[in-house]
Amino acid sequence: LTDEELVTMSVRELNQHLRGLSKEEIIQLKQRRRTLKNRGY
C-alpha cells in the first residue's frame, strides 16, 4: 500500500487489507496511517 492509499482509504477498506496480516504488521500500518493523517495530507 502507498502512503496515499493508506490515507484516502476508508477504515472498512483498510481492515479488509489487514485481514491475514500479522499483529505486528497491522500495528505498524496503523501507526504509519496515523502519522500521515497528523501531517495533514
Rank of each mutant, 00 (worst) to 15 (best):
Y41L: 13
K37H: 06
T2W: 02
V11I: 14
Q16L: 14
E13W: 03
E25C: 09
H17D: 00
Q16F: 13
E13I: 05
L29W: 04
S10Y: 01
T35H: 13
G40Q: 14
E5C: 12
Q16C: 13
D3H: 02
L36I: 04
I27R: 12
R32Q: 03
N38F: 06
N38Y: 08
K23Q: 09
I26D: 01
H17L: 14
L21Y: 07
L1H: 02
R39W: 09
R33V: 09
R19S: 08
R32M: 03
E4Q: 10
L21A: 07
T8K: 14
K37A: 05
R33M: 09
L36N: 02
R19E: 09
E25L: 13
E24S: 12
T35N: 13
E5I: 07
V7A: 10
E25S: 07
E4S: 08
L29K: 02
L21W: 06
R32S: 01
R33W: 15
R32Y: 04
G20C: 07
T8V: 08
K30L: 15
H17Q: 05
R19W: 06
R34Y: 06
L1Q: 01
L18P: 00
I27F: 12
T35A: 14
K37T: 06
G40W: 13
K37F: 08
N38T: 07
E25P: 00
T35Q: 14
L1V: 06
S22D: 06
K30N: 05
R32P: 00
S10G: 06
Q16W: 10
Q28P: 02
Q28N: 10
E25Q: 12
I27T: 11
S22M: 05
Q16P: 03
L1W: 06
N38Q: 10
G40T: 07
V11E: 13
L18D: 01
L6N: 00
K30Y: 14
R39Y: 10
M9W: 03
L21N: 02
Y41P: 11
Q31G: 06
E5Y: 05
R34Q: 12
L29C: 15
R33S: 03
T2H: 03
R33Y: 15
E4I: 12
R39L: 15
E5V: 07
Q16N: 12
H17N: 05
V7D: 03
E24A: 13
R34H: 10
K23N: 07
E24R: 11
Y41V: 13
Y41K: 10
T35K: 14
V11N: 11
L1K: 02
S22I: 03
Q28F: 13
E25W: 04
R32G: 00
E5H: 06
M9V: 03
L14I: 05
S10V: 02
M9R: 01
K23M: 10
R19Y: 07
H17T: 05
K30V: 14
L14R: 00
T8S: 14
G20Y: 08
E24G: 11
I27N: 10
L18T: 06
Q31W: 07
N38P: 04
L18R: 00
E13S: 05
T2G: 04
N38K: 14
I26R: 15
M9G: 01
L14S: 00
V11C: 15
N38C: 15
L6I: 05
Q28E: 13
G20F: 08
Q28Y: 14
K37W: 05
N38V: 06
Q16S: 09
I26F: 04
E5G: 03
E4M: 13
Q16A: 13
M9A: 02
E25I: 10
T8M: 09
L14W: 11
T8F: 08
R32K: 06
H17I: 13
N15P: 00
K30D: 03
E24K: 12
V11P: 08
L1M: 06
L36K: 02
Q28D: 09
M9N: 01
G40S: 07
E25T: 09
R33N: 02
L1C: 07
E24V: 09
I26T: 06
L21P: 00
K23P: 09
I26M: 06
M9Y: 02
L36V: 03
T8E: 08
S10T: 14
E5L: 08
S22F: 02
E4F: 14
E13Q: 10
E13K: 07
L6T: 00
R12F: 11
L1P: 05
E24L: 10
Y41A: 12
R39K: 15
S10M: 02
R19V: 11
